[in-house]
Computed example of a mutant assay.
Amino acid sequence: MIASEKDPSTSYFPLGAARRLVGTALTEDLGPDGLDVTSSATIPADQTATGHVVAREPGVLAGAPIIAPVLDGVASMTGGTPPSLEVRIADGTRLEAGDVIAVLHGPVRQVLMAERMMLNILSRLSGVASHTRRWADALAGTRCTVLDTRKTTPGLRELEKYAVRAGGGTNKRMGLFDVAMVKDNHVVAAGGVAAAYAAIRTRHPDVAIEVEVESTQQALEALEAGARFLMCDNMSIDLLRATVAAARSWVAERGEGVEIEATGGLTLDVAAAYAATGIDYMSVGGLTHSSPIIDLALDLD
Rank of each mutant, 00 (worst) to 15 (best):
A136T: 14
A68F: 00
R248A: 01
E158G: 06
H204D: 09
F13A: 03
A55V: 13
L230N: 10
K151Q: 10
T78P: 07
A62L: 11
D233C: 12
S39T: 12
E212D: 08
A275P: 02
L104T: 15
V188H: 04
I66D: 02
T24P: 00
S215I: 11
V70N: 02
R19G: 04
E259D: 12
T50P: 07
L287Y: 03
V103I: 15
G79I: 12
S123F: 01
V193I: 15
Y197H: 15
R173L: 02
R20M: 06
W135H: 02
V213M: 13
L220F: 07
R150T: 09
V111W: 01
A62N: 05
D184T: 11
D7W: 10
D206H: 14
H289L: 06
I101S: 08
S84D: 14
P205D: 03
G226V: 12
V284Y: 00
V146S: 05
M77T: 15
A252P: 06
S40G: 00
R150P: 14
R228C: 15
L296V: 05
D269C: 08
A102Y: 10
P58H: 05
T263K: 01
R88D: 01
C232T: 07
G141E: 09
G51D: 11
P32H: 11
L85Q: 12
T81P: 04
D206F: 14
T27H: 09
R56W: 07
G255F: 03
A17I: 04
L287Q: 12
P82S: 11
V37S: 12
A140H: 06
A138Q: 04
P65A: 01
L125V: 04
R134Q: 15
D29C: 08
G264Y: 00
R203A: 15
S9V: 00
G98A: 14
S11G: 06
T81Q: 14
L300H: 07
F229N: 11
A136P: 01
N171R: 02
W135L: 05
R165K: 15
A3R: 15
V108H: 05
V211P: 07
T50N: 05
T149D: 13
K151L: 11
G155N: 14
K161R: 12
V60C: 08
S249L: 10
V187S: 05
A49W: 02
Q217G: 07
V182K: 06
S76Q: 15
T243W: 00
L287I: 06
A55L: 13
S215G: 11
D184K: 13
H52F: 09
L223Q: 11
